[in-house]
Computed example of a mutant assay.
Amino acid sequence: MTDHDEAAAVRPLTLAWVSRHLEAGERIVRTDVLYGGITAEMRRLTIGTREGGTRDLVLRTFVDPFYVERAEDWLSREAGALTLLAGTGVPAPGLVAVDPTAAHCEYPSLLMTHLAGRPVIDDAGVETRVPLLARQLVGIHALRPAERPREYVTLTTADTVVVPKGVHAAAWAAAIDVIRKPAPHYEGRFLHRDFQPGNVLFDVPPSSPAGARITGVVDWAATSWGPADLDVAHCSTNLALLHGAGWGQRFAEAYEEAGGVLAGAASERLYWRVRDALACSEEVQLVARSWREAGRTELTARVVEERLDAYVTALMDALG
């Protein structure tokens, strides 16, 4: 058995659980590891149908002890979000089954439908994808569910920010002072809460990158209710680290061009963007590793730290 086969193999109890949620006469004929995630193991399961065809499902499994402790909340929220999103026009997976407490599986797990497309995090074509990302996020924020998800949570504080070595110290000190202040008042919106290029699937025609289209939005485990600025800030930070500080700033403009509404005051917008950028300082190693696994091998932790420094500095410079 190859290393890939071992990594792709579904554990026995989980395999039995998945099988109970298949149609009569169906069976798993292949499993493949999906790379690029941070919190969970992801596998694509190819299901053989009794008519002789195949269809795909995706299995999310929380294995790391840190994430297992949080899995019941996250998977329950994701299951609720996928149920809510069905029929809304937002291209999200369909829920098949969930075992948030590992009552049936070795580890907490969620089974969902597979969406066509793939995350695209390369520099090439970013100018085409940014407006598409912005329009999709505006559509998510337009949802008005009958039952709101829980209020957003931010764990980063001014005292927990990890300041990388060699940064522009004055800019970082000023940025940290920004988040010492109380959060601005906001009008609540339905948030994805981890909307960024790694969680958006694209179909990109090889002969026409400009013809890219979004085929899905995945990873709804952090769905929340809060300010649109927070989702915009998170995607902006990720774009800045993937493609350079200018793209982080460009995304907010694209969001407004697509009809999205952000905080009215510049200081309020700055608060959310700085808060998200500083939160990323605590996860640079994990973020950089996931992007390298997804093919951006040049994005070492140090390179990502340097881009984060450039972005934080640009945000503070824009304040004047």
Rank of each mutant, 00 (worst) to 15 (best):
residue 50 R to F: 10
residue 63 V to K: 08
residue 42 M to P: 02
residue 59 L to G: 02
residue 90 V to Q: 02
residue 86 A to E: 12
residue 19 S to A: 09
residue 56 D to S: 14
residue 52 G to W: 10
residue 57 L to M: 07
residue 48 G to F: 03
residue 39 T to P: 04
residue 56 D to H: 11
residue 84 L to W: 14
residue 102 A to P: 06
residue 24 A to N: 10
residue 100 P to N: 08
residue 86 A to N: 09
residue 88 T to I: 06
residue 94 G to C: 08
residue 33 V to M: 05
residue 64 D to R: 14
residue 83 T to G: 05
residue 26 E to W: 05
residue 88 T to G: 05
residue 40 A to H: 10
residue 97 A to N: 06
residue 29 V to S: 10
residue 90 V to L: 07
residue 54 T to V: 11
residue 100 P to W: 05
residue 53 G to R: 12
residue 34 L to S: 02
residue 54 T to I: 13
residue 41 E to C: 08
residue 89 G to F: 13
residue 96 V to C: 14
residue 33 V to I: 11
residue 87 G to Q: 11
residue 55 R to N: 07
residue 49 T to P: 01
residue 65 P to V: 03
residue 99 D to V: 08
residue 91 P to W: 00
residue 71 A to Y: 03
residue 40 A to P: 01
residue 83 T to W: 03
residue 76 S to M: 13
residue 74 W to M: 15
residue 89 G to C: 07
residue 49 T to V: 02
residue 98 V to F: 07
residue 75 L to G: 02
residue 54 T to H: 15
residue 89 G to I: 10
residue 90 V to M: 14
residue 33 V to G: 09
residue 93 P to L: 01
residue 76 S to G: 13
residue 34 L to I: 14
residue 51 E to V: 12
residue 80 G to Q: 07
residue 101 T to C: 12
residue 51 E to C: 10
residue 53 G to H: 06
residue 90 V to W: 04
residue 62 F to R: 09
residue 18 V to E: 01
residue 95 L to V: 00
residue 98 V to I: 06
residue 57 L to Q: 03
residue 88 T to V: 09
residue 88 T to D: 03
residue 78 E to D: 13
residue 54 T to S: 11
residue 82 L to K: 01
residue 98 V to W: 06
residue 39 T to N: 04
residue 88 T to Q: 05
residue 23 E to H: 14
residue 37 G to V: 03
residue 23 E to L: 13
residue 88 T to F: 06
residue 50 R to I: 11
residue 68 V to T: 04
residue 60 R to I: 00
residue 88 T to A: 07
residue 97 A to R: 03
residue 20 R to F: 00
residue 78 E to M: 07
residue 48 G to H: 10
residue 41 E to A: 14
residue 18 V to Q: 02
residue 87 G to L: 06
residue 26 E to G: 00
residue 92 A to L: 01
residue 30 R to H: 12
residue 68 V to W: 07
residue 31 T to S: 15
residue 77 R to P: 14
residue 23 E to A: 13
residue 83 T to F: 04
residue 71 A to F: 13
residue 90 V to R: 05
residue 17 W to F: 10
residue 33 V to N: 04
residue 75 L to H: 05
residue 23 E to Q: 15
residue 27 R to T: 09
residue 49 T to E: 03
residue 82 L to R: 00
residue 79 A to W: 00
residue 103 A to R: 15
residue 101 T to V: 12
residue 21 H to A: 06
residue 74 W to D: 08
residue 100 P to K: 08
residue 72 E to N: 07
residue 63 V to D: 07
residue 34 L to N: 03
residue 60 R to K: 14
residue 34 L to A: 08
residue 38 I to C: 11
residue 96 V to G: 04
residue 94 G to W: 00
residue 77 R to V: 12
residue 77 R to Q: 13
